[in-house]
């Protein structure tokens, strides 16, 4: 049975519209007009238990709204959702015991108290026996390298430590399905790496299902085998990360180091020229003629070195998100 099943899920919000200026303000006060915003439009997908799936989309594409519907925080306008065998919006205890949501820009820990106090509340709320709670906290503290930090007031922790403590609080009841909304937001590179490693280890150790949104492509490439891409509320891609690159980046970059300089007009006969820096030339070659072109370059030109690379994934995904390329 799938851990997450989403069928034709939609969410429509009414949003008040206000014209700028005094006239607009007065009009807005006496007569409020609303327009409907289709935040999510009939999306469908399934996620199997233990999968780690990246959820990509530009700001306002509908990622967070979808996560809110999957965690039962908001009610869908239409469609069907099933998470861990439950309908999220009913917020049954069994459902809440099985899921968690981590929001990088929000915190649940009590600011003025040590994190351990908030964890004790969570243990009591989730009805975790004392011994099991201690075991869980010890294990997660070790995985997150948080030893000695849980007894300090949360406000005294660094941003990275606080995010790790938030993760600990969100996982202390050992949920099976994790929804992570920008879990590495604002963290430095080292903290990002350690959060990423922790998530990978958590997934492997407990077989948890993870749906992750992030603007840091490194999070996605390090953790996700599969990605969902949402654009203006519609799901435009569901498949492997490599597949996304293949589909949306049909060119490869061929970097050639030549033994002698050649005139650009001659080089341009082989493929589109991306750049020429002395004797180092970079071509952009469509994938279907890649082998032929490389062979021709090697035969015709005096080549010292040749390398074929994929364009950076950030660039590909940026292009997909910007253009909303529909598959």
């Amino acid at each position: 049975m799938s851990a997450i099943v989403v069928e034709n899920l939609s969410k429509v919000y009414p949003v008040a519209v206000k014209e700028p200026g005094l006239k607009g303000t007065v009009q807005h006060f006496f007569h409020r007009t609303y327009r409907e915003v289709k935040a999510v439009q009939a999306i469908s997908f399934e996620i199997e238990p233990g999968e780690v799936v990246g959820f990509l989309g530009a700001n306002g594409a509908g990622k967070t709204t979808t996560l809110k519907m999957l965690t039962g925080l908001i009610h869908p306008s239409s469609g069907r959702v099933n998470v861990a065998g439950y309908t999220p919006f009913q917020r049954k205890t069994g459902f809440l015991q099985k899921i968690t949501l981590v929001m990088g820009q929000k915190q649940q820990l009590i600011w003025d108290l040590p994190a351990l106090d908030s964890l004790r509340i969570n243990a009591a709320v989730y009805n975790i026996p004392d011994r099991q709670f201690q075991q869980q906290v010890d294990e997660l503290t070790e995985m997150l390298a948080l030893a000695g930090k849980l007894t300090q007031p949360v406000r005294k922790l660094s941003l990275g430590e606080r995010m790790k403590a938030e993760l600990l609080a969100a996982l202390v009841h050992r949920p099976q399905v994790l929804f992570l909304d920008e879990p590495t937001l604002g963290l430095d590179v080292n903290a990002q790496v350690s959060v990423r490693e922790f998530l990978r280890e958590y997934n492997q150790r407990y077989g948890a299902t993870v749906l992750l949104t992030s603007h840091y492509m490194a999070d996605i490439t390090a953790l996700c085998q599969r990605v969902l891409v949402i654009h203006e509320g519609q799901l435009i891609y569901d498949g492997s990360l490599e597949g996304l690159v293949d589909r949306f980046a049909p060119c490869r970059e061929v970097k050639v180091e030549l033994a002698q300089p050649y005139p650009p007009e001659k080089l341009a006969l082989y493929a589109e020229l991306e750049a020429i820096e002395g004797q180092i030339v970079r071509f952009l070659v469509p994938q279907e003629i890649l082998t032929r072109t490389v062979a021709k370059i090697l035969t015709d030109l005096d080549v010292i070195d040749l390398a074929v690379t994929e364009p950076p994934i950030e660039e590909v995904i940026g292009r997909v998100l910007k253009a909303g390329l529909v598959v």
């Binding site: 809110k68 965690t71 925080l73 205890t93 809440l96 929000k106 969570n122 709320v125």
Partner: peptide, 12 residues
């Protein structure tokens, strides 16, 4: 501020 979300995620 949307902080109710965290409360709603817990079974209490």
């Amino acid at each position: 501020e949307g902080k109710l979300s965290f409360r709603l995620l817990q079974p209490l």
